[in-house]
Design a protein around this nucleic acid. Structure first.
Lengths: 156, 156
DNA sequence: TTGTTTGCAAACCTTTTGCACGTTA
DNA sequence: TAACGTGCAAAAGGTTTGCAAACAA
């Protein structure tokens, strides 16, 4: 089966190690804040906002400034280690970008705002066919489906 | 041919009239600011930011407040008369949503930021097949392809 | 030691809101 | 006239930046 709304298992391809290596090879030193952000992201299946990242780090006892979270995410984005996603709520979300190219897309509930990941091979194939036809060098893509999640739909 | 990077012709299905009628039927009165925003959007093929809308209206001599542009867009969005798009630059973009369901998606250049519309039937079919399989009532979707536009790609 | 990273606070930008005034029905 | 729409200014987020202190190499 090609479609699943379940996230894949945690850390199966060790994104954390890949990210640390890539950062080092790009000449970045290791500091506490960026390290903590990488460690936290390595444990995520789906996207978090910068504030969510800072809050979780605080909960775990780290005192990381929000600005440092943004700076870490900026570097990770430049190195294509994270995928930035705008779900339309005015705040950006970030999730690990796996070197294998494996990725998912998102369902966003118009009503409650919950974001759910899904994967679909047919969709990926259609996008690859499309990208070949365009006069553009395509590096990546995002698909967001909007609608009513099962809970909100049932609650009508 | 199913794929085109060209926008379709201006106002061929008279979105402006449709929008005015929908607004009236929803009980909205007609005011200068919202009217001007609808008129301007009716002439657009692709997305504009709120500031771009206000600036163009000013250029045309209207003195429309930016807040009124946002308020107009909010109403139009609620009535599903516009499509809101986040291209990831931190500012939302808006374009007319045609009642026929005809729509396009966007290519965003990572380098220069230019946004180009495209249409692809294969992609639409893949999304429709996918939507049927999900446990979600899907109302809409956005696809953003990111990469290097022909100019930026050539300039390397 | 030297340049990088970080935390804090201030600055910035987009978007929303309060309020008084003008306008529509 | 009563309710709605608008413009302006202020407020409210989210994100970026300046700077001095802490830190890695």
């Amino acid at each position: 089966m090609a479609t699943t709304a379940h996230a894949h298992a945690h850390g199966t391809d060790d994104w954390g190690a890949h990210a640390r290596l890539t950062l080092e090879q790009a000449g970045y030193r290791s500091g506490a804040a960026r390290h903590a952000v990488v460690e936290l992201l390595a444990r995520q299946d789906c996207c978090l906002t910068a504030r969510e990242i800072a809050d979780r780090l605080h909960d775990e006892g780290s005192s990381i400034g929000l600005a440092s979270v943004y700076r870490a995410l900026e570097v990770l984005d430049e190195l294509r280690l994270v995928q930035r996603l705008d779900a339309g709520e005015g705040t950006a979300r970030f999730e690990p970008a796996h070197p294998s190219g494996e990725h998912h897309h998102h369902l966003v509930c118009d009503n409650c705002g919950v974001v759910t990941p899904f994967e679909d091979d047919g969709l990926e194939r259609a996008i690859q066919r499309l990208a070949r036809k365009l006069d553009y060098e395509v590096h990546g893509h995002d698909v967001v489906l909007r609608g009513a999640c099962p809970d909100c739909h049932a609650a009508r």
